[in-house]
Amino acid sequence: MKPEALLHPTPAGLYCPPGDFYIDPVRPVDRAVVTHGHADHARSGHGAVLATPETLEIMATRYGEDFTERRQSAEIGEVVNLNGVALWLVPAGHVLGSAQAVVEHKGTRMVVTGDYKRRRDPTCAGFEPVPCDVLISEATFGLPVFRHPDTAGEVAKLLHSLEQFPERAHLVGAYALGKAQRIIRHLREQGYDETIYIHGAMQRLCDLYERLGVPLGPLAPATVKDGRGAKQDFEGKVVVCPPSAMGSTWARRFPDPVIAFASGWMRVRQRAKQKGVELPLIVSDHADWDELTDTVREVDPHQLWVTHGREDALVRWAEVEGRVARPLHLIGYEDEND
Results as ranks from 00 to 15, higher is better:
His160Val: 13
Gln164Ala: 15
Pro166Thr: 09
Arg168Leu: 10
Ala169Gly: 06
His170Lys: 05
Leu171Met: 09
Gly178Ser: 08
Gln181Ser: 14
Arg182Thr: 15
Ile183Met: 10
His186Glu: 11
Glu189Val: 05
Glu189Arg: 11
Gly191Asn: 03
Tyr192Cys: 05
Asp193Cys: 10
Glu194Leu: 08
Tyr197Pro: 04
His199Glu: 07
Gln203Pro: 07
Leu205Met: 15
Leu205Arg: 03
Cys206Thr: 15
Asp207Pro: 06
Leu208Lys: 07
Arg211Met: 08
Arg211Phe: 06
Val214Glu: 02
Pro215Met: 00
Leu216Asp: 06
Gly217His: 03
Gly217Ile: 03
Pro218His: 07
Pro218Asn: 07
Leu219Tyr: 03
Ala220Ile: 07
Ala220Phe: 03
Pro221Ile: 01
Pro221Met: 03
Thr223Pro: 05
Thr223Asp: 11
Val224His: 07
Lys225Met: 10
Asp226Leu: 13
Gly227Arg: 05
Gly229Tyr: 10
Lys231Asn: 09
Asp233Trp: 04
Glu235Thr: 12
Lys237Thr: 10
Pro243Val: 07
Ser244His: 08
Gly247Phe: 04
Ala251His: 03
Arg253Leu: 14
Arg253Asp: 11
Phe254Met: 04
Pro255Leu: 03
Val258Phe: 03
Ile259Tyr: 02
Ala262Arg: 02
Ser263Asp: 05
Ser263His: 03
Trp265Asp: 03
Gln270Ala: 15
Gln270Glu: 15
Gln270Lys: 12
Ala272Cys: 01
Ala272Arg: 00
Lys273Gln: 13
Gln274Tyr: 09
Lys275Pro: 02
Lys275Ser: 11
Val277Asp: 00
Val277Thr: 07
